[in-house]
Design a protein around this nucleic acid. Sequence first.
DNA 1: ACGTTTTGGATTGTTGACAATATAAGGCTT
DNA 2: AAGCCTTATATTGTCAACAATCCAAAACGT
Lengths: 226, 226
Amino acid sequence: MPEEAEKTYTRADEAFDCIQTSIVKGELAPGEKIGELELCTRFNLTRGPLREALGRLESRGLLVRRPHAGVKVVSVSASELVELYRIREVMEGLAARQAAERMTDSEIADLQATLDAHEQMIDEAQGQAYYQAEGDYDFHHRIATGSRNTKLAQMLLGDLYYMVRMYRYRLSTSAGRPHRALGEHRRIVEAIAQRDGELAEFLMKRHINAARRNIEKQIQDGVLTI
Amino acid sequence: MPEEAEKTYTRADEAFDCIQTSIVKGELAPGEKIGELELCTRFNLTRGPLREALGRLESRGLLVRRPHAGVKVVSVSASELVELYRIREVMEGLAARQAAERMTDSEIADLQATLDAHEQMIDEAQGQAYYQAEGDYDFHHRIATGSRNTKLAQMLLGDLYYMVRMYRYRLSTSAGRPHRALGEHRRIVEAIAQRDGELAEFLMKRHINAARRNIEKQIQDGVLTI
DNA sequence: ACGTTTTGGATTGTTGACAATATAAGGCTT
DNA sequence: AAGCCTTATATTGTCAACAATCCAAAACGT
């Protein structure tokens, strides 16, 4: 047999995943105060593992906790969301540069293939923001892991993306943006394929910059109220 | 009365702080396997709060945990340490730029004052690496918080610095480096005082780059074996 | 009627006992 | 003698009861 990376899952892991996805999907709204007992009944577990999971979620910044007072889902202000994109800009810029230096040829080929798939998704699911977002997430995910920088990938995938995705669900991507974003993705992968790390970094930073400006515009227009 | 931000500390918070500092100070060596009972007796607490603290520490990447097998302190390889500095380069570059835009005049004055204090420390405690490291930490800490970017500060202060400090204790700063580092700090603060964000970013990136090269040299020379 | 204090309820923090699992030692087979 | 399997121990994961704390509603005084 090739490889059995089967990790035994504990109840706390389970709780962590469940609550995290619930927050990201918006089933637990930002700012909402949640009781431990309520969570226990909802996810079928006892308070021991739950509290361990809450500790992890707090440390990741998805929850805020006041002793004896309870837990509530973190609510990110509009300005804080913009700040998140400023961080993404520099970190993913680095990830793109290191990915250009370190991704294998087959990984790059895979990446190009997924871009084709994304294009189809955009054409088919015309305006289905959800699938566009998933495709975008997939792209950035691959670059992060492709950087071969363990901590960088961990910070991007484990911290930033979850917070960004919390708001992806309510962000209306403006009309032409998906196609333009795909084009930007293509150029980034081209730079990576040519092993031009400097260019990949530049293009990735500009790509996220554009996304940030798009959000700032929505905030100004009052479309996005947080 | 002005403001009472007195937070009630729970046993789990206590455990978290204790274990974290123990790891950073090297009292718990990297790679060391530690039992829960041992930790309980050492820090005088029971397993409930302890496990919550362990969850937080794992999520921050200071521990690795295998179900039913135990916890062990994370051990960062030499190459991973270098990668950490690559992340610091871009993130602290951003922090410096935003600090230049957002720090108050009095904060900047304070920062300049601390640099004077650092200079004295370096002169007095000739070669006392510990105090140099603390001064250096203080400088970077102030810039991170001065950026007014909550998440950025959280990631730098809560994640990266602890991992870097784990190794600061065993890194021998090369002969002339403290003075040169102080000079670099001075120029960064100058740029911030002039509200030149672009320059501050550039200088900060170069500063951390130099620190990284210093470490790489130590690794090559075999001084630092991880 | 409004603000302050007090008390009750509910929720969180903590504890110790119980169940499940991995590591390690010992015996068996080849 | 070496390798595999079995078993025993110790450690971790889980649970349910107890204690401490905060929040809100009611009672009191002004």
